[in-house]
Design a binder for these strands. Structure first.
Lengths: 181, 181
DNA sequence: TGGTACATGTAACATGTTACATGATTAG
DNA sequence: CTAATCATGTAACATGTTACATGTACCA
């Protein structure tokens, strides 16, 4: 019941629980598909946060259902804590980009190896961009009005991945290898 | 001395120690200024990793200098461990972007509050972009050949921040508020 | 001589990751 | 009946954060 400050992961779970009671399993799947691209979390974490939030009275375990699933419902205290959290100034983003370390220390990497690494990552980003663009193209008409928030996050992904590709394509041959086109 | 696998933070310290022996203090400053934009670390962590790497024989503490500073030098084992690490496939990046959570759950945020948050973050990114662009413009001629790696990471920052601004400017009024221009 | 910047280090805790153990239900 | 999938949970550990305690040297 103590008023420990919410962390972003726990708060997100509360966010999803506004829609309907869900089990840990459901929450993992929901979170990974809806915010996974900019807020990763694991199963362990979800069960941990649910247990902590239950202890704090922010969620309530419901009857076990099929296959032992244990849905949690958000409580009034949970709604209140979430409302407070979501209106707060969000922390600045953190980007941890190991590839950039490889590039930064590129002079210690054999040239072909570096080029291969870069090429592989470029491909990953190209694939992701294609996925996002397909999702964007598949949006039904009227979606922009109906769910502007989810669309904005999708557009973030598109903007980000396009920027990545632009960056890859502007890398000098020292890093990306001899021009292959 | 055990061959525990290097983590990216420790490896980066080794990367910088290739240039010259440095103390924990120096390493914090160096890392924050040279990789801080895509790989954050704290003082605590640096001292912890240095102690661990010293125990593993990857670095060696030197004589204490002025003001009790204790420089560390990389060892041959350290160079070897680094070379192996840096040529490995880097892990995918992780982005943790709390603002996107705020946006995703935007329907729970009062409209003016959401717009204010978004505007403030836009400004932060605009400032950062301006800084990066100033740095880029200030590069001496020939820098592209002399230090392509550091420049590539700077260009990453520019590409990223431009994408962010583009994204902010394309947000619908529901999120960014009534057009102010 | 007192404040500020330099410098090291520890402690306590929060968060994130990986691996495992266990059991329920369903599909073939 | 059995393999696959659904589902919960714990344990152990790695990493990241915040706060504090201590001491050194410079400079106004």
């Amino acid at each position: 019941m103590t008023a420990r400050p919410l962390n972003a992961t726990a708060a997100s779970l509360l966010g999803f629980l506004h829609e309907e009671p869900m089990s840990g399993w459901d929450l993992v799947a929901t979170a990974q598909s809806r915010i996974g691209d900019f807020w990763s979390l694991t199963q362990s974490q979800v069960y941990r946060e649910l247990a902590a939030m239950a202890a704090d009275g922010l969620v309530e375990a419901q009857e076990r259902g099929r296959r032992d699933r244990r849905p949690y419902a958000i409580t009034d205290a949970g709604r209140e804590a979430f409302a407070e959290w979501v209106a707060r100034e969000p922390d600045p983003e953190t980007i941890r980009f190991p590839l950039l370390l490889t590039v930064m220390f590129g002079r210690h990497v054999p040239a072909e190896r570096l080029a291969a690494i870069v090429a592989k990552h470029r491909q990953t980003h190209a694939d992701r961009l294609a996925t996002y663009e397909r999702m964007d193209a598949a949006l039904p008409p009227g979606a922009a009005e109906a769910e502007p928030y989810a669309i904005a996050t999708l557009r973030f992904g598109i903007a980000y991945e396009r920027a990545m590709l632009g960056w890859f394509d502007a890398l000098p041959p020292t890093i990306a290898g001899p021009v292959s086109s």
